[in-house]
């Protein structure tokens, strides 16, 4: 048993030693502080009300520039909207469809099966409207940056009105603590009372940032709750099975000198 434990420790060490080194961000950019997210622990789940507030922030603020192309309206049942609400949300959007029988493209109200329409028709248009920078798609943002949600939250709250003394900030750029190189093309997107919450949650910049980061964590990992709840069952099953295997092993080996 001692050897087994050593083996397990060696294996765990092998894994963490390598990746720990790889995951560190380089340079003078500070590491964003770890936040308390509702989904952090093994049993952690999403807070539906928070996701819906975050969706409201995305819809009213981020969606002006950032696409969400892996999310369909029908997916919004994952953050607690019912079918009628989803239909209503989808119908607020104009979606291009076609060609019709005359060969023309036409616009119609969105349906639950439609994906979120992108704010710009193509990357060139996006760059032209944003001083040359292309606003990235947000569907996977929380998985696509070192630090994940902590980084996204840090970035959204990490703006400074004035760049520090001696920092050469280009025209049209903003200073951000957590953005690599500190010069970010995105102007500070959030401020106090940027979005009006209906549920009485304080409408601070920080709360908006926290909510939209939670929403983006759901868009990046919509399977998170199903994954964890299945995982707990699988691991519990495996622990019982493995314990039984160990007992059988001892019984089979009891007469063998080894």
């Amino acid at each position: 048993m001692r050897k087994l434990a050593l083996t397990a420790i060696a294996a765990a060490f092998a894994v963490t030693a390598f990746t720990g080194g790889a995951a560190k961000a380089a340079g003078d950019t500070p590491v964003p502080a770890a936040q308390e997210w509702s989904w952090n622990s093994i049993f952690g789940t999403y807070d539906r009300a928070q996701l819906q507030r975050g969706f409201q922030v995305y819809k009213n603020v981020c969606a002006g520039c950032h696409s969400l192309r892996f999310i369909a309206f029908r997916n919004l049942d994952g953050i607690g909207f019912n079918e009628d609400q989803i239909k209503a949300i989808a119908a607020e959007y104009d979606v291009e469809d076609g060609p019709n029988d005359d060969g023309d493209m036409f616009t119609r109200p969105g349906k639950p099966s439609d994906y979120f329409p992108s704010p710009f028709p193509n990357e060139k248009a996006a760059a032209a409207s944003n001083g040359g920078a292309i606003p990235p798609d947000l569907s996977l943002m929380n998985k696509a940056r070192v630090g994940g949600p902590d980084y996204v939250f840090g970035l959204l709250t990490g703006y400074e009105e004035e760049a520090p003394e001696g920092f050469d900030l280009s025209d049209g750029k903003s200073y951000n603590h957590y953005f690599p190189g500190h010069q970010i093309s995105m102007a500070p997107p959030l401020y106090d009372e940027a979005v009006e919450y209906a549920d009485g949650t304080p409408m601070t910049l920080e709360q908006h940032a926290r909510d939209v980061t939670a929403f983006l964590n759901w868009t990046a990992q919509p399977e998170l709750e199903a994954r964890k709840s299945l995982g707990i069952k699988v691991i519990l099953f495996l622990i019982v099975l493995t314990a039984m295997m160990y007992a059988v092993k001892r019984k089979i080996w009891r007469d063998i000198e080894h």
Binding site: A8, G231, M245, K249
Partner: peptide, 30 residues
Amino acid sequence: TIKDLFGLGVFLIFFCAFVFFAPDYLGHPD
């Protein structure tokens, strides 16, 4: 066979811990 099965159980717990609780830990965000 039984010793390997017991080892497999231990290994699967380790494997599943990654699959279910840290699936992207070994990958790269980029």
